[in-house]
């Protein structure tokens, strides 16, 4: 296990290094921030002073090395726009996105697993067919449209739920969280549900497919031949076997949600990281873009590691020896 973790850590470092280079080059190619940041009325002298202050006068490779050196000391640069450390800007908005992503993922599991299980166990019942048909809608309806409809129905028509912002927040460990207040939770419900819709459908379909496949296995029949109760057969013998694909996909989806829940955050004016990155791209705020993407790389590396470790807990045949 230790050897495995060490190996993965070295791999992770290599991935981060390569990604930093790609991200840096990519962001450089997007456009020149000077045109946007400096007012057109500024004279030549002011322009040059600003370029020097932002470090944009250096050749690209020098800029990269400066960035790398600073990054090693935990400094991912200062935002051109806010004149604040990019990392702090991101971390400020991270709780908002995290609670949205966690809410959506938890909702996907709580709703998706039971429905998928039911649809898998009773594939011919009308309810199962209804569940599967609805899950197709979950896949195909565009997120922004569903978000707008949710607002129309629950905020505008019925007036049950608020439609924008995070509501009341509580500060814990220097970060603002809204899931600890009633008002905050009310604000969280709609965006989380909107984000969860696709995932619910995904979990339903994965679970159903897994159940259908596992139910045919000899070990399920053998478990029944042992005289076990149907509940024990389903929740111990079948369930543990279908969790492996579900964990993989939900893990990756969770990363994707944190990184790219831009649409939902925009529709519900949720002050998360997704909105920050869109705004930064619009004004070519390079340090924020780079810092953000580096954070996402780290996030995915961490999630993949957690998924691998979960595998080994779920399936004894997977051993984390680090040998290939």
């Amino acid at each position: 296990m230790t050897a495995f973790l060490l190996r993965r850590l070295i791999q992770a470092a290599a991935v981060v290094l390569v990604m930093s280079l790609l991200v840096f080059l990519g962001v450089f190619a997007v456009g020149d921030p000077i045109e946007i940041l400096i007012s057109p009325e500024a004279d030549q002298f002011e322009r040059e002073r600003a370029i020097k202050a932002l470090g944009l006068d250096l050749p690209l490779w020098r800029q990269y090395l400066v960035f790398l050196g600073n990054a090693l000391r935990g400094d991912l640069g200062r935002s051109f726009v806010f004149n604040e450390p990019a990392l702090r800007l991101i971390l400020d908005r991270m709780p908002a996105t995290l609670e949205l992503a966690v809410g959506a993922t938890v909702a996907a599991l709580i709703i998706g697993l039971p429905l998928g299980l039911y649809a898998g166990l009773k594939p011919n019942s009308p309810l199962s067919k209804g569940i599967m048909a609805t899950s197709i809608l979950g896949f195909s309806l565009p997120t922004f449209w569903v978000g707008l409809m949710l607002i129309m129905v629950f905020a505008v028509q019925l007036g049950w739920l608020p439609s924008t912002g995070r509501g009341e927040t509580v500060t814990i460990l220097g970060m603002r969280w809204s899931f600890l207040t009633r008002d905050g939770i009310a604000h969280l419900i709609m965006p989380a549900l909107n984000l969860a819709l696709f995932k619910i459908s995904l979990v339903i379909r994965l679970t159903r497919a897994g159940v259908r496949e596992t139910m045919l296995m000899d070990y399920v029949k053998f478990a029944r031949a042992k005289g076990l109760s149907p509940a024990r057969v389903t929740f111990v013998h079948v369930f543990k076997n279908i969790l492996i694909p579900v964990v993989t996909v939900v893990g990756l989806e969770f990363g994707g949600t944190i990184a790219f829940s831009v649409v939902t955050e925009s529709v519900f004016a949720w002050p998360g990281m997704g909105k920050l990155i869109i705004d930064s791209i619009n004004v070519l705020d390079r340090p924020v873009m780079v810092a953000y993407l580096m954070m996402i790389v780290l996030l995915f590396i961490t999630i993949n590691l957690v998924v691998d470790i979960t595998y080994s807990l779920l399936d004894p045949r997977v051993r984390l020896e680090g040998k290939s």
Partner: peptide, 24 residues
């Protein structure tokens, strides 16, 4: 169900498939 595995038991054909792979 009370009889199954209790008074009447069954052994299956393929031993590689009859035991649940994820349970001890």
């Amino acid at each position: 169900r009370g009889l199954r595995g209790n008074r009447i038991a069954m052994i299956f054909q393929d031993p590689m498939m009859t035991l649940n792979p994820v349970l001890r």
